[in-house]
Structure formats: structure tokens, C-alpha cells
């Protein structure tokens, strides 16, 4: 790929960097406990938690770094951190 003049780029390219590979602990979302408040989605530094059908939330493991902020802050204790199996 030819270089862009002046070291510029269009959006979307950061997604080439799959930060999910950094993960040591993996958040497991328990939809039975989830109140669908959306706090996890708001506070995720990656912005990788998405609402799926019926309003349940799930992380995109391609990018989730496993920081555990969602698990720590979830008011329903619906997110459990588990050791990543590699």
C-alpha cells in the first residue's frame, strides 16, 4: 500500500489492531442477572460492548482487553471475570 501524503489516514484502520489478544481475564456476561442498564457500555474504554437483540449487552472479544472495569462497576454483578484459556 502506497504511503499517504503527510502521514494521514482515513478512519477505520485502528480496527486492524485486534487488542483482544492482550486479554488475560475475560468478562463473561450473565444475561439472567443483567438489568440492561447500559452502564458497562458507557464506561468501556474500548467502546467494544454492544447491545444485541432483546437489549442484552455483549463485549466484542476481538477488541476487549479484559480490563475488568465493566465487571467492577456492574450494579447487578452480572459480569464475571474468568482466566483466559489460551
Amino acid at each position: 500500500m502506497a504511503l499517504a501524503i503527510g502521514c494521514r489516514a482515513k478512519p477505520g484502520k485502528s480496527r486492524d489492531n485486534k487488542t483482544g489478544s492482550w486479554r488475560v481475564f475475560k468478562p463473561i456476561f450473565n444475561h439472567e442477572k443483567c438489568s440492561q442498564c447500559g452502564l458497562c457500555q458507557t464506561i468501556c474504554p474500548e467502546g467494544c460492548i454492544h447491545e444485541e437483540e432483546e437489549g442484552f449487552l455483549n463485549p466484542d472479544y476481538t477488541y476487549c482487553k479484559g480490563c475488568g472495569l465493566c465487571s467492577e462497576e456492574c450494579p447487578s454483578e452480572a459480569i464475571e471475570m474468568k482466566q483466559e484459556e489460551k
Partner: peptide
């Protein structure tokens, strides 16, 4: 038409810039 200006270059790119 968003573009990022003034990104930084790693050793993989700096020489070519």
C-alpha cells in the same frame, strides 16, 4: 470526509515518509 493529520510513524514507516 474525516482524515487524521499528523499521525506518528513507527520505524516501519518513518524512513519512507
Amino acid at each position: 470526509d474525516p482524515i487524521s493529520f499528523g499521525m506518528y510513524a513507527t520505524p516501519d514507516y518513518y524512513l519512507e515518509f
